[in-house]
Structures are given as C-alpha cells and as structure tokens.
Amino acid sequence: MSRSLLGLLLLSMFTFHGAVQAQSLPWVDDTNFSNIVGQGGPAVVFFDASWCGACRSLDGPMGTLAARYGGRVQVLRMDVDSNAETPQIFGIRDLPTVVFFNHGSVAGRITGSASLDQLESRVQALLR
C-alpha cells in the first residue's frame, strides 16, 4: 500500500471517528438549558451550527472530552440556529464557541478553534 493511500485511509478513519463521537454529545436547547446546566456540577456547552465549517474542527475533541469526563462533567451541544434565547443570554456571536460552566455560572469560554489540550485544561480547572 502506498504512503499516500495509507495516509488517506488513516485520515478518513480519524475523521469518521470524530464525527461519530460528536453525534454522541447530548443536545441541549432553550427549553431545558437552565435545568440541565444549572444542576450544580460542571458543564461544557459547545455552541454550534450545521453550516459552521470551523465547528467541525471541534467535533473530535468535544467527543473525546465527553468520553473522558462523562461521569464528572456534562458535555453538551447547542444548535444556535434552533435556539436563539440561550446564545443571546451568553453573548454567543461567533462560532464555534465553547462555554464552561460551574454551578450554573460561566467559568470561561473559548471562541474559535481549540485543541483537545486547551479544552481539557479548562475542564480540569472546573474539577479543582
């Protein structure tokens, strides 16, 4: 097998794997946001839209966060096109945006692309 074919195969496997993980993130919406995020524990909300190409760069890292911290941190996703109220309350103007909550209050945010290490660092800070 040639190097380029092997590289494409590995890239496609990684991309598919990331998409599967992202789809496993629970969706939150305007009607249940306060009840879910305000439960008291740490939460991470990925504000996203289907048309947002840059948001796809966070699919894999967000899925990995959910897998690694699932029992300790809620990792959620919100579609900003279907939910106008919550993004407006939290000043979501650019996508992708990830907001970190602790006991229902904003503890931090990342706007734009971010690495898994950057996201994980913020999650670990929530758990301290």
Rank of each mutant, 00 (worst) to 15 (best):
F101R: 04
F100N: 03
Q39E: 13
F100V: 00
R128N: 11
F33A: 04
G63N: 01
R72F: 06
L9H: 09
A67C: 00
Q74M: 07
V20M: 06
C55H: 06
N102I: 05
G108Y: 09
F47Q: 03
G60Y: 13
A114I: 00
R68C: 05
R93T: 08
R93L: 11
V99R: 11
G91K: 12
V73H: 08
G40F: 09
D81T: 08
T64C: 00
F33D: 05
G112K: 03
W27L: 08
V99Q: 12
G112Y: 11
L58S: 06
M78R: 04
Q74C: 01
Q23H: 10
L6T: 11
I36F: 09
S113M: 10
G53Q: 14
P42C: 05
A22Y: 09
L119V: 01
R109K: 14
V73I: 07
V75Y: 04
G40R: 07
Q124F: 01
Q21D: 00
G108V: 04
E85W: 09
P26R: 09
L8G: 15
D29V: 02
F46T: 00
L10R: 15
L116R: 05
G71S: 10
A107H: 11
F16M: 07
V37F: 09
G53E: 14
D48R: 10
F14S: 12
Y69E: 02
W27M: 03
A66D: 05
W27N: 10
R3Y: 14
D59F: 06
S34V: 02
R122H: 13
R3T: 05
G108N: 11
L8A: 15
Q23T: 03
L127K: 09
G91P: 12
F47R: 03
M1D: 11
S4T: 13
S2M: 12
A125R: 12
P42I: 02
I89H: 15
M78L: 09
H17W: 14
L11H: 15
H17E: 08
W51S: 02
N83D: 09
A54F: 13
W27S: 12
L10W: 15
G63M: 01
L25G: 01
V75W: 05
V75F: 03
R56G: 03
C52G: 06
V80R: 13
A54E: 12
L11D: 15
P87R: 05
R93M: 12
